[in-house]
Design a protein around this nucleic acid. Structure first.
Length: 470
DNA sequence: TGTGTTTCGTAGGGTTCTTGT
DNA sequence: ACAAGAACCCTACGAAACACA
C-alpha cells in the first residue's frame, strides 16, 4: 500500500456517517503495515510532533510507503531531535517538494493528529484491540437523581485540582495525569506512598492482624499477592487551580506543597487489563480507608471524606456545606457501582452554575467543521473581552455568523468596551452586535475572565435599549 | 538578554449523529 | 423512544520552547 491508497481509504471512511461502516472499512485494511503505521502515527496520544504543519499541497515525486524516509522525519519530530524553524522548514520541504499529493495530504493529517474521517483511537481499537495505547480513568456524569436506585448513597467533596493516578508496582511508583501523562513534579512523594503501603502490608501479615480472616484475605489480594501492586486515584491539590496546574507541570522543581486527596485504591493488574474493576464501591472504600489509615498524620496523603445521604435533600445539603467550605462541589456515588474506566453514572458531579447577561462586542469564525460559520461570540465582562464558544447549536452557528457579518458591514466606530458601542449598534440596526446574551459559566478567573463560558440565549427582554424597540 | 508567540497540556463546557437496548 | 458512545467543536490558563529584535 502507498500514500495514494491510504488517502483513498480515508476518504471512503470519511464519506460514510455510519460508525459500523467506518469500522468495517478499517477492518478490511487493518492487515496492511503502511495503513497501520499511519493510524498509529496519527492517533497514539503519547506521540506528538511539536508543530502545526503549513497548509500546502505536495507536488513531489515520492509516495508514502513503508520504506519512506518520512517515518524518520516523524521520529525526529516526536523525539524533538529537530524542533523550531528547522522542523518547520523540513516539514514544508517534505509536504511541498518530496511527497506526492495524496501522500502529502496524509502526512499533513498525521502531523495534525487527526485523519479527518470521523475516527479516533476508540474505533481503531475496536478493530485491532490495543493498537493505540489508551489511558483511561473513571469520570463523572452530571448529577441526575433519577439515577439513584437505592439509598443511602455516598457523597464526597469535589476538589478543584488535577486528577492524579499513582501506579505502584513493588518499589516502582509512577505519577500520571488522567490521560496518562507523567507528573514528574510528584516523584518526591514515592517514599511516603511506599511506606504507607508497606505498613499496611505488615499489619496484614502480622499474626495479630485486627481484621477478620475473610477481610484480611480480600485486602491482601487487593494490595498484591506478591509485593505491592495497586493504583491510587485522587485529586492533587497545591493551592488554587492555576497554582496546581503550574506546580504539577513544572519540570524544574518538585511540587512539594501538593496534597494528594485520594478516593480509590485499586488492584493494579485488574485496573491495567480491564475496562472495569468489578469491585463495589463499599468494598473499595473500606479498603481505601484501611490502607490510608497507615499514612502519616497531616502528611501529603489524605483520604477524601465521605458522607451518607438518604434523600436528594440530604445530598443538596452536603453539597451546600462543601460549597460553604470553599470546595468546588460534590460527587455522588451509588454504593454498589463498580469502577468503570470511562464517564459513568457510578459517579455524578454537582457543581455551581452561575449566569450573567453580557453585551456582544464581536464574534469569530470557527475552524474545522465550523469553517465559514460562527466559532463564538465575544462579550464584554466588566471591561474584559470574553470569548464564548460553546452552547450554540450547529444551526445557530450558521445563522449567527450571517447576522454578525451583516452587522460588521454597518461599520461601527465606537470602542467595543464602551457604552457608546451599544448605542451605535442600536442606531445602525445591528441584530447581533450590541445585544445582551445570557452566559452560563463555572467561575470568574483571576484575570476577570470566565471559566467555561457558554451561550444560553439572547436577552433583549432584559435590555431597555432593545426592549423599547421591539 | 528580554519580550512575544506557538505548542502542548491541564481543567472544563457543549452539540450532533449513530447504534444499542 | 431513550440512553449511551463517539466524534469534534469551544473556553481559560500555565510551562516550555522557540523566534526575533
Amino acid at each position: 500500500m502507498d500514500g495514494y491508497m491510504v488517502h483513498g481509504i480515508l476518504e471512503d471512511i470519511a464519506k460514510t456517517s455510519s460508525r459500523t461502516e467506518k469500522i468495517a472499512i478499517l477492518g478490511r485494511h487493518m492487515s496492511d503495515p503502511v495503513f497501520k503505521r499511519v493510524l498509529v502515527a496519527a492517533y497514539d496520544p503519547f506521540v506528538t510532533y511539536g508543530l502545526t504543519p503549513p497548509k500546502c499541497v505536495g507536488a513531489g515525486p515520492q509516495s508514502l510507503t513503508m520504506d519512506s524516509k518520512f517515518w524518520t522525519v516523524l521520529e525526529q519530530l516526536a523525539s524533538r531531535t529537530i524542533t523550531g524553524n528547522a522542523a518547520r522548514d523540513l516539514v514544508q520541504e517534505w509536504l511541498l517538494d518530496v511527497l506526492d499529493e495524496p501522500s502529502s495530504k496524509v502526512a499533513t493529517m498525521i502531523l495534525n493528529k487527526d485523519l479527518r474521517c470521523g475516527i479516533t483511537a476508540k474505533s481503531i481499537n475496536k478493530v485491532a484491540p490495543g493498537m493505540i495505547p489508551e489511558f483511561t480513568v473513571m469520570l463523572a456524569h452530571k448529577f441526575e437523581d433519577k439515577r439513584i436506585k437505592t439509598w443511602p448513597v455516598a457523597v464526597e467533596p469535589k476538589l478543584d485540582g488535577l486528577r492524579t493516578v499513582i501506579v505502584v508496582n513493588d518499589a516502582d511508583v509512577q505519577f500520571f495525569s488522567r490521560t496518562g501523562k507523567p507528573f514528574a513534579a510528584l516523584d518526591h512523594l514515592a517514599p511516603v506512598i511506599l511506606a504507607t503501603l508497606n505498613k499496611a502490608r505488615a499489619v496484614l501479615d502480622a499474626p495479630d492482624c485486627p481484621l477478620d480472616e475473610k477481610r484480611r484475605e480480600a485486602f491482601s489480594r487487593m494490595l498484591g499477592k506478591h509485593g505491592l501492586s495497586v493504583v491510587l486515584d485522587g485529586e492533587g491539590v497545591a493551592g488554587t487551580f492555576n497554582e496546581t496546574t503550574g506546580a504539577l507541570r513544572r519540570k524544574s522543581e518538585a511540587a512539594s506543597d501538593t496534597v494528594l486527596n485520594l478516593f480509590e485504591v485499586l488492584p493494579r493488574r485488574t485496573f491495567m487489563a480491564n475496562d472495569v474493576v468489578p469491585l463495589p464501591y463499599t468494598l473499595r472504600r473500606a479498603f481505601a480507608e484501611w490502607v490510608l489509615m497507615h499514612a502519616p498524620e497531616n502528611g501529603p496523603l489524605r483520604l477524601v471524606s465521605r458522607y451518607l445521604a438518604n434523600s436528594p435533600a440530604e445530598i443538596q445539603s452536603f453539597y451546600q456545606s462543601f460549597r460553604d467550605r470553599g470546595l468546588e462541589g460534590a460527587i455522588v456515588k451509588p454504593m454498589s457501582e463498580h469502577y468503570h474506566k470511562k464517564r459513568h453514572y457510578g459517579w455524578m458531579k454537582i457543581k455551581a452554575q452561575e449566569t450573567l447577561d453580557l453585551r456582544v462586542i464581536g464574534a469569530f469564525e470557527g475552524t474545522g467543521k465550523y469553517e465559514g460559520q460562527l466559532g463564538g461570540l465575544i462579550v464584554d465582562h466588566s471591561g474584559v473581552a470574553v470569548r464564548v464558544g460553546g452552547g450554540f447549536s450547529d444551526e445557530e452557528r450558521v445563522r449567527l455568523w450571517e447576522r454578525f457579518q451583516a452587522d460588521d458591514e454597518r461599520g461601527l466606530t465606537a470602542d467595543p468596551l464602551t457604552e457608546a458601542f451599544a448605542t451605535e449598534a442600536f442606531a445602525k440596526g445591528c441584530t447581533a452586535l450590541g445585544h445582551l446574551i445570557e452566559v452560563e459559566y463555572h467561575e470568574k478567573t483571576p484575570d476577570g475572565s470566565l471559566r467555561h463560558p457558554r451561550f444560553v440565549d439572547f436577552r433583549d427582554d432584559k435590555d431597555d435599549l432593545w426592549k423599547e424597540a421591539a
